[in-house]
Structure formats: C-alpha cells, structure tokens
Computed example of a mutant assay.
Amino acid sequence: MDELLGSSCPCGSDESYRVCCGPFHRGESQARSAEELMRSRYSAFAHGDADYLFRTWHPRTRPDDVTIDPRITWTGLEVIDSVAGGPDDDRGEVEFKAFFESAGRADSLHERSRFERRAGRWFYLDAREDL
C-alpha cells in the first residue's frame, strides 16, 4: 500500500490518498461525517483494506468476516445525496453510485447507505440497493 500513498484518492477528492482517506485507514484520525466515512469505505474497497471495512461496520450489523473480491476493480465514485450525518447528528444517509469493472465488464452499484454515530465515531449500518 505504500506505493499508493502519493496517488490520488479513490474517493474522488482532489487530494492525494496520503492526506485524504489514508489517515482514516491507518487509524490516525476518524471520519467527521457520514459522507466522509462512506468515501473512506469506498477507498478501502479500492485499496483492498478489509480490516478498515470491518472496523467501521456497526457491530450490530457487520458480518463475522469481511472479504474483498480481488476480481473487482473500483473505478469511480459519485455522491448523489447526503442527509444529516454531520457533526451534530447521530444518524445519516448517503446515496451514491460506485463504478467498477469485473471480468472485463464495466458496471455500477447504486446504494443509499445508513450510518450511525456511537461514542463519537461514525459506523456503516446498512444499505438499500433497490433504488
């Protein structure tokens, strides 16, 4: 992962991975909003960081094990809508499209994710994909 630190961040910001989502993945800081957590989770999928995905998944809804399919290449992220999920909220929702390639075919995932803050930290709760 060190070779990726200077590259642009997969979450779509204009920042490098080193200063954008890298600090979250390395445990140096916490997401300040539901959207920031969603973007950092997308970057974790793109970088193959299953440990970060597990750590940021709400304990009530997370699976026993989180794995990342190595046959999927994540190619882009478009945030469509964000509801609540700010510094004064305990819940939030983020709708997005995540673009990927698998088996040489381009595809996308359209999802509205729900997030919950516990003890000052944001966690991914669950998602609705029937949009």
Rank of each mutant, 00 (worst) to 15 (best):
M1E: 13
D2T: 12
E3N: 14
E3A: 12
L5Q: 10
G6W: 11
S7V: 10
S8T: 15
P10S: 04
C11L: 06
G12H: 05
S13Q: 01
S13N: 03
S13D: 01
D14V: 13
D14L: 13
D14Q: 15
E15R: 14
S16M: 11
S16Q: 11
S16I: 10
Y17C: 02
R18A: 11
V19W: 13
C21F: 06
C21P: 04
G22D: 07
P23N: 07
H25L: 01
G27N: 12
E28V: 05
E28R: 12
Q30L: 13
A31P: 01
R32Y: 11
S33C: 03
E35G: 09
L37A: 07
L37F: 06
M38I: 07
M38L: 08
R39Q: 03
R39G: 03
S40I: 08
S43G: 06
S43P: 07
S43L: 02
S43H: 07
A44C: 02
F45R: 04
H47N: 14
H47Q: 13
D51S: 06
Y52I: 00
L53Q: 00
F54A: 05
R55V: 00
H58V: 04
R60W: 10
R60H: 13
R62W: 07
P63F: 07
D65A: 15
D65H: 13
D65C: 15
T67Y: 02
I68K: 01
D69N: 04
R71C: 10
I72M: 03
G76R: 08
G76Y: 00
G76N: 01
L77E: 01
I80E: 15
I80R: 13
I80P: 11
A84I: 11
G85K: 03
G86D: 08
G86L: 06
G86C: 06
D89F: 14
R91E: 08
R91S: 10
G92S: 02
E93V: 11
V94W: 02
E95P: 08
F96R: 09
F96D: 00
K97Y: 09
F99W: 02
F99Q: 01
F99N: 02
F100V: 01
E101G: 01
S102G: 13
S102T: 14
A103I: 07
R105D: 14
D107N: 12
D107I: 06
L109Y: 10
R112G: 02
R112F: 05
R112I: 13
S113L: 06
R114W: 03
F115E: 05
E116M: 09
R117K: 09
R118T: 12
R118L: 12
A119Y: 10
G120Y: 03
G120C: 00
G120T: 03
R121Y: 08
W122A: 04
F123S: 00
F123H: 05
F123N: 02
Y124T: 02
A127H: 04
A127G: 15
R128A: 12
E129K: 14
L131H: 13
